[in-house]
């Protein structure tokens, strides 16, 4: 095994109505619902992608984080081999509960296809892939809590075996208006080494 080192290129955190990119606040809203916060962020960041409003909360959260980190990265003329390795604790449970509502009452039984399609956590990866045309390695994992060891190991494997040129790692947890997104981009060049302790420190900020 060659001594390949990988580096953290950039990182982004979304929580408590705030979006932070590499220690700089990019957007902040007054305390409000996630739906409202995400809409405000969408407008402020001039995203212009109407499909955003069809997404469930988990996908909006992941999409916003990816938008921030990938805007500068993506070359629209090239094949961007950026893998997506995401994880959370609650899977798509927030949307699952909403879908269950559409089938729980015999007198009002109207299963919603638009909600059902989001009852899988990896759909957010699909949304990011479509937006940025990333025909790349995608995987969604579930852990009880943020698992930097796994993300670091798995991202390194993808880079070292050349299954990807860069990896966008993301912890995107959303349930019942409680949310935290922590995304970071790993590449073969950079300044900050891709290590478990570093990720842990940055996550806690």
């Amino acid at each position: 095994m060659t001594e390949n080192k990988n580096y953290i290129h950039s990182f982004c955190t979304i929580q408590n109505n705030k979006i932070v990119l590499n220690d700089e606040t990019v957007f902040e809203a007054e305390s409000t619902s996630f739906a409202d916060f995400s809409k405000q962020a969408y407008k402020k960041l001039e995203i212009n992608y109407p499909k955003f409003f069809k997404m469930d909360s988990l996908s909006k959260l992941a999409f916003l984080g990816a938008e921030i980190l990938l805007k500068a990265e993506i070359d629209p003329e090239a094949e961007n081999n950026i893998a997506l390795v995401f994880a959370n604790k609650s899977s798509s449970l927030d949307t699952d509960v909403k879908y269950q509502e559409t089938i729980s009452h015999e007198e009002n039984y109207f299963p919603s296809p638009a909600v059902f399609v989001y009852t899988l956590p990896n759909i957010c990866l699909g949304e990011i892939s479509i937006r940025h045309q990333l025909k790349t390695e995608n995987s969604f994992f579930i852990f009880e809590e943020f698992n930097p060891e796994f993300l670091v190991n798995y991202a390194n494997v993808l880079l070292d075996t050349k299954k990807a040129d860069k990896v966008l790692c993301g912890w995107v947890e959303y349930f019942n208006e409680e949310y935290k997104a922590f995304l970071y981009l790993v590449a073969k060049e950079g300044v900050v080494e891709h290590q478990i302790e570093t990720i842990k420190t940055v996550y806690k900020k």
Binding site: M1, S91, L120, P121, N122, I123, N138, S139, F140, F141, I142, N153, Y154, N156, V157, L158, D160, T161
Partner: peptide, 21 residues
């Protein structure tokens, strides 16, 4: 692994990658 209907076989791929490394 919760990755829609590829979850079952993706697990084999992930396992292989973790073991190889």
């Amino acid at each position: 692994i919760s990755n829609a209907c590829v979850s079952g076989i993706m697990a084999v791929s992930v396992a292989k990658r973790l073991i190889q490394s």
